[in-house]
Amino acid sequence: MYDLVDYAVVDISKAEQDYKEVKQLLSRSDLDLDSQVTVFMVAKINEQIIACAGIDRNIIKCVAIDPNYRGNQLNLTLMDHAIKYANENGYFHLFLYTKPENIDFFKGCGFYPIVEITDLVVLMENNPVGIRQYCKQLSTQQKEGSKIGSIVMNANPFTKGHQYLIQYAASQCDWLHVFVVNENASLFSFDTRLKLVKDGTKQIKNVTVHASSPYIISRATFPTYFLKDKTKIDQAYMGIDLLIFRNYIAPALNINYRFVGTEPYDEVTKAYNEAMSYWLEDKAVSNHSAITFVEVQRITEGDTIVSASLVRKLLASGQYEEVKKLVPSTTWDYLSANLDKFKI
């Protein structure tokens, strides 16, 4: 039977019939269609899609197989084709998120669990030692001290608020590690954000600014297609991101503090901050050392709380003098020279 299967790459945004068939197949597997993926490796018999695997850069998503055709040969061949396609497009280190009940299936396809949130989600990668290799590399940047702090930020763009948070945290620690989230779903590219953070903190001597890795998860790219209960999305995202940090990244650098600014505007970020003390400090969720969570009050400019979202709004409306008040001179130098890039 499997000799009759044809494998092909389809872009469902350009093929209405393929879109319908993939969506129906996913629905039968109790999965939603992820809005961030349009390219699928599909298996067809008599022009009918019987299996699919979505490829979104380095993440395999939306894997589904018609119950009438499930079997090791089809499973493995589908995943082999999907992985080969990703490799051909320059992505060799691959990840996937799935339900914990599917761990054994994906283990058989060459993926290995990194961290699991019970009954919700597991993150897997196609390298048995991937995260350990990353942590080994990180450990070369360990610094001496009993109080090693950390901050994870998007810095979209880098503001006086970010600068103050780093200055304050550095003043409280022997050393501070700052991770800039590595994704390009923001207005400012990752390379730009990383440069702005480095330029805005170079006067602080006990700080290392890291280009973060795929192991620091971006909320913007966290897939949710496998979670039918949408109220669990943020719990799943927060758990994955914070447990990876607690179980792997923090031990590699001897981090025992994590600093964050208060969040007066964005409800998702506010909820994330509130969840930090649980995932980072509670002994019940991890057997790794607890990380002390420190929330720092945001600074204001006059009566205005400094935030990157406000800076973006002011840029969009052309209020450049107001922007200048909210960002360090290094950020303003970049903005004033590149306003046309952001279609402001």
Rank of each mutant, 00 (worst) to 15 (best):
N184R: 00
E321A: 11
I83K: 15
Q48D: 06
E183L: 03
A15K: 15
I291D: 00
P67M: 12
Y272H: 13
W279M: 07
C173N: 11
R57W: 03
D56E: 08
H177M: 11
D241C: 12
A15I: 10
R132G: 04
V296W: 02
E47W: 08
S218V: 06
T192E: 15
Q163M: 10
K228L: 11
I117Q: 10
K143V: 13
K143F: 07
L339P: 00
D303A: 14
M276D: 04
S286T: 06
V181M: 07
V37W: 01
S309H: 10
I117N: 10
N273A: 14
H162P: 12
S139I: 08
S277V: 14
V285E: 00
H93S: 10
F222K: 11
A271G: 15
D56R: 15
S289Q: 10
E301Q: 15
A82D: 04
D104F: 06
A170K: 13
E263F: 02
G130M: 09
L76G: 09
S171Q: 06
L326T: 05
W279D: 05
K313T: 11
L315G: 08
F245T: 05
V10H: 06
N58Q: 14
I249F: 05
P157N: 07
E267N: 15
L78R: 00
G71T: 09
V323I: 08
Y225L: 03
P67K: 14
F179Q: 00
G261F: 03
F245H: 07
G302E: 04
G161S: 09
L76W: 02
N72P: 04
T208F: 04
N89S: 05
F158C: 15
G161H: 07
D6K: 15
Q319C: 11
P100M: 04
A308T: 04
Q203P: 02
L78S: 03
D3C: 10
I291W: 01
I55R: 02
F105I: 13
E88L: 10
S277Y: 05
T300W: 07
V63G: 02
D191P: 14
G239V: 04
A236C: 12
I131S: 10
E47V: 12
M276N: 03
A236E: 04
D119W: 05
T269E: 12
S317M: 08
D34Y: 10
V9K: 15
Q73P: 00
N126V: 00
H81Q: 11
S35G: 13
D66E: 09
T300E: 09
T224W: 01
Q133L: 06
G302S: 03
I131G: 11
N72L: 07
L4N: 12
T192N: 04
K270L: 11
N89Q: 11
A86N: 08
M153G: 02
P223D: 05
V268Q: 10
F179S: 01
I305T: 12
Q133H: 13
I240G: 02
V323A: 03
C173P: 12
Y2R: 11
I45D: 00
V10G: 06
L310F: 05
T330M: 07
K99P: 00
S213M: 06
E321M: 05
R312G: 13
H93G: 12
A250S: 03
P128G: 08
A271W: 00
R70M: 05
